[in-house]
Design a protein around this nucleic acid. Structure first.
Lengths: 226, 226
DNA sequence: GCAAAAGTGTTCCATCTACACCCATGT
DNA sequence: ACATGGGTGTAGATGGAACACTTTTGC
């Protein structure tokens, strides 16, 4: 077999949503290159773990986060993307529910933080490019798969869902049409609980019915939000 | 940096279309493991080339094919997918126009052939899984990007396009609605040439107007075939 | 003149869009 | 009683689906 010394890494773009803000999870590097820069969590793949396992391990180690949704995003392998070695990075796209937003810098004292995607620091390596791709993926996927629920609490208000869509898609959505459409899918369970947000009429709580979604999907149903 | 000895490879799923058949390009391996099995063209990435360059080089070396469309598909890195070493394979999805279908086995006397995707041999490694993913990508992408034209001659009949869609999507399509829709996009140029296929009324030739497509796309046009 | 493929238009139905008023609560 | 956010229905426009006959050629 040919001699080859290319390193294989994984990096993750982890999105969270809170207070009408779409956040992304970053760590501050404490070694060169790009020491003190912010970067996506990630690292080299170990020889005895699968790629997904590597992502989950790195996230746990560096940020203490466990994700609610994970899928492969894209692989980046251009020459010179890491000044030290040739590194091919297999990147992942992840979503975290608010109840799992707690983060903790790791033992190496790396800093960890959630950043508003609209207000990001400079990122190390080609991570800005990766993040851009992830944001597109999120925007697209939101329209044809019910992944928005992995960014909300288990029980949520319809207005939360609506605001989530408006924030991520960066456009206005008509409340009545949106509600009609989503409820028409029959994949939400309307709970018998109301929440009063201080002022205004109390709103109903809803839950995403994942089982119903999968059942409907098998029968040819297609989730689709314009 | 941690010791790590994972190899990085690229593999390509190359589709061609001829005589109403969707074909995929395979090579017959002449070394173990899977000696004499059919497999996707590919191989290890060299240290001084980008991933796309590696794919194009391997395709050239192993099959003598130059592709007309190339995009990254997915990366496979499970433990044990190659019995010799840990190999992470970054796979690509490619399309070839009929005028570039000529293939040639390489100097190592590897066999190369086009196979009907409906009638495939057993494939080496996890290549069946990769191919399955590529087929899905092709089917999906056909509906929201004008990539079908990269499987047809430069000048083609409308009925060719129609049959291409029916073959790949594996369903019937109404000729009138299909034609109306595609022509409505305004991205085809109707040539002043007719072709007689032996019997029946001679048909007009068309050309895909790529520039017009990109221009329309920038203005918000969205290619979309149900 | 018949077989074969190309070319074309209309009607119906479903879905999307736009849009405004009442309801339940807290202060 | 007023401010705040929640909840709902209708009419018009648009786009998709279904569908059959005429045209041009080769034999």
């Amino acid at each position: 077999m040919i001699r080859q010394n290319i390193k294989v890494a994984v990096d993750a773009v982890v999105f969270g949503y809170k207070d009408k803000i779409l956040n992304v999870l970053l760590i501050r590097r404490n070694i060169d290159p790009y020491k003190d820069s912010w970067a996506l969590p990630g690292g080299l793949v170990l020889e005895n773990e699968n790629l997904e396992q590597a992502v989950e391990r790195e996230l746990k180690e560096e940020t203490n986060v466990t994700v609610d949704y994970l899928e492969q995003l894209y692989s980046f392998g251009d020459l010179g993307r890491d000044p030290r070695n040739r590194v091919v990075s297999i990147t992942y796209f992840a979503l975290v529910k608010p109840e799992h937003h707690d983060i903790k810098a790791d033992t190496d004292a790396k800093d960890v933080a959630w950043f508003d995607v609209q207000d990001l620091p400079e990122l190390a390596f080609d991570h800005a490019k990766i993040l851009k791709k992830a944001k597109k993926r999120l925007q697209n996927k939101l329209t044809y798969e019910p992944i928005g629920f992995d960014l909300l609490e288990n029980k949520f208000l319809f207005s939360d869902l609506e605001k989530l869509y408006m924030t991520i898609l960066e456009k206005e959505i008509d409340r009545r049409n949106f509600r009609k459409k989503i409820l028409g899918f029959g994949i939400l369970k309307e709970l018998d609980e109301k929440v009063s947000e201080g002022r205004g009429r109390p709103a109903n709580l809803f839950q995403f019915n994942k089982n119903q979604y999968f059942k409907s999907k098998e029968e040819g149903f297609f989730f689709d939000i314009k």
